[in-house]
């Protein structure tokens, strides 16, 4: 149930992000990524048949995908003993899904991990549960099943070696690895 609510949240966030980028051009990044759009607009105005400066028919544009994106996060963290995806990761996972759906030859491996507490093979199960939670969301978002492999390292490959809550939080994770 949580899974579907997250999916809708993800779609909602996606829509807001899309609308925002279309409605309010981000001038801060225009010189980097949106430069070509701006120069086309200017030439259209200069050659306009109305002859009046500052008037014209205008044109539709969509720079979504051309804007400089924040680096795509490759690690999804989880709460203690949980495999539910936190809502904060909905846009990150949506971007991965879009990437993969657009590039059917791109494959990923989802590597699930657990913190060190408890039994090792059971922790392999907890890590797998986490990588499968990410996998299911990506499948629903249109990624093909044969693009995704999963593996669980349980507590065997910690990101942090400490025995404290800070390290444990860093170790309860799924790493998204893009394969060649």
């Amino acid at each position: 149930m949580k899974f579907y609510s997250l999916l809708f949240t993800a779609l909602g966030v996606m829509c807001i992000a899309g609308c925002a980028s279309q409605g309010i051009p981000d001038f801060g990044s225009a010189s980097d990524a949106g430069g070509s759009v701006a120069s086309e607009g200017e030439s259209a105005v200069a050659g306009g048949s109305e002859g009046a400066v500052g008037l014209g028919e205008g044109e539709e544009f969509n720079d979504f995908g051309q804007m400089e994106e924040a680096p795509l996060e490759m690690v999804i963290y989880f709460d203690f003993d949980q495999s539910d995806l936190r809502t904060e990761y909905s846009d990150v996972l949506q971007r991965h899904s879009a990437n993969l759906a657009d590039n059917r030859r791109t494959n990923i491996r989802l590597e699930g991990h657990a913190d060190e507490r408890g039994s090792r093979e059971y922790n392999i199960g907890l890590g797998e549960r986490r990588s499968q939670a990410v996998r299911r969301l990506l499948l629903v978002q249109g990624v093909s099943a044969d693009q995704i492999a999963t593996v669980s390292f349980g507590e065997e490959r910690p990101a942090a070696l400490g025995s404290d809550e800070e390290s444990w939080q860093l170790n309860r994770r799924v790493e998204i690895k893009y394969l060649d």
Binding site: E121, I124, G125, E128
Partner: peptide, 25 residues
Amino acid sequence: INGAPAFSPDGRNLVVTLGGLDGNL
């Protein structure tokens, strides 16, 4: 997942944990 092997007392079998594509151990 291919995990948690243990030999049977007669040594002929292993009990193992398999997860499959959907990760159901």
